[in-house]
Simulated scan of single mutants.
Amino acid sequence: MPVTGSDIGRRQSIPILYTKGTHYEVGFDVGRTFGSLIQSFVNSSEALNQEYLPAYNTTEGKEAYEATLNNLIRNFPQYIKELEGIADGAKVPFYKLLLLHIDDVILKPQNKEGLKQPTGCSSIALNLKDHAILGHTEDALSDTLNHFYFVSAHIISDKPQGRWNVKEEKFTSLCYAGHLPGYTMNYNHHGLVFSINTISATNLQPGKTPRHFLTRAMLGAENFLQVQQILRDSGVGAADACSVNLTFLQQDGDRVFHNIEVGPAVNSSESQLSALTISPGEDFIHTNEYQRLPLDQANEMMLLSSKCRSETLKNYHPPSSFEDVVKMLGDTSHPEQKVFRDQPNDYVKTIAVGIFDCNNKTWSLYSDNPIYNEPLVVLPLLLKNPKSN
């Protein structure tokens, strides 16, 4: 019997698009290629349809939306064009896609909270001489399952774009349907590799820069200084919060990883940042709560899940290999708050697992638990000016 909608189960499929052009052209190709997935996600997204659209249809919500859009047009016009391209190619309304990027910030004027579900991701950085690994579970509301794809894009502009004057971007990113690249796990041709952990801050700031756009801008970063500059976003600042785990494959000297916690720009015109360096011989775990920034956090269910996942991962001996990271990210030992989440009635599921091997310059993607499954694909990390080993 044919299956449809939510009955299709976990698909062993991650489609990929290779595309080249302007921001709008790349966006249009993404929308045109993945239009059915994007339309399906827009129609089924509980957060969009039950939370963001009702908020948008209020006076306060419209004002927050317009203030955010005007800020983005001033500072990141190229990414607005990219999102317009996705909307046009997929034949979905632009405002619905932008609402997915504004996220819970649209709810702030009415002092509402978003869906109180234990969403989030787990990231592990391992910095040994023989094993330099960044591993990540991509966890999302269950309606996101099967609604994602790879975008491998080469964007060349005829003049510098946006506040950071970027003319060329070349990257590969795992994308939620209808979303800009940059907010899950990604790498660019300068050798920047990074993953994102969502954090639910309490004091969200309508009119400032949504985290999705800050991490999109990171795909053009050439070095750690530029990453910090992008995330600090001086003059405006972040509207919400996240954690960024990163390294550069071609950095001089010993390899280091970094974790940067990003907080909203409250009574300020720049994001709150806390950066930590993971030196040679060290490992690091981050889930979906602040470890260093002393800021109020919302979503008690996500905080509980984060603490449980962190405790589970820290109960392991410090990882010393690729296989150790696989075991940790596939862990299902906790009775409720599992690291790899795939319970039948869970509101949140692990939609994919990615492991970057920084020494061998590969990215292994699993669409199911990595303990019991081979990677669905192992992508080479292709760099602009690769150094000889």
Rank of each mutant, 00 (worst) to 15 (best):
L313R: 08
S321N: 07
P335K: 12
T350S: 06
F340M: 02
V326P: 00
K338R: 11
V339Q: 05
N345I: 14
E311H: 10
L329R: 02
K338Y: 08
Y347F: 15
N299P: 10
S306I: 05
E300L: 15
F340I: 04
P318M: 04
T312G: 03
M302R: 09
L304G: 06
Y347S: 13
P344H: 12
A352Q: 05
F322Y: 01
D331M: 07
M301N: 12
C308S: 13
V326F: 01
S305G: 14
V326I: 01
V348L: 06
H317M: 13
S306R: 02
L303K: 15
E311P: 08
D346A: 15
D342W: 04
S306A: 14
P335L: 01
S305K: 12
V325F: 01
V325R: 00
E311R: 09
M302E: 14
P319S: 04
S333V: 12
E323T: 12
F322H: 05
Q337N: 15
P319V: 06
N315A: 15
S306N: 05
K327E: 09
E323F: 06
K338W: 03
T312W: 06
Y316S: 01
F340Q: 10
R309V: 13
N345P: 08
F322D: 05
E323V: 11
K349V: 11
S333A: 14
D331C: 07
V325C: 01
C308A: 14
I351N: 02
K314P: 11
S305N: 15
T312I: 02
K314D: 09
S321K: 09
P335E: 13
T350H: 05
K349F: 03
A352F: 06
N299K: 13
P344L: 08
S310Y: 08
M328W: 01
E323K: 10
M328E: 10
T350E: 02
N299A: 13
S321P: 05
L304M: 13
P344N: 10
K338M: 05
L304Y: 07
P318H: 07
F340C: 03
Y347Q: 14
Y347L: 15
N315C: 11
K314M: 12
S305Y: 09
T312E: 06
Q343P: 07
V325G: 00
M302W: 06
V348H: 06
H334T: 12
A352K: 03
N299L: 14
E323Q: 09
L303P: 09
P318Q: 10
E336W: 09
K314N: 15
Y316V: 01
K327L: 10
D324G: 05
V348P: 05
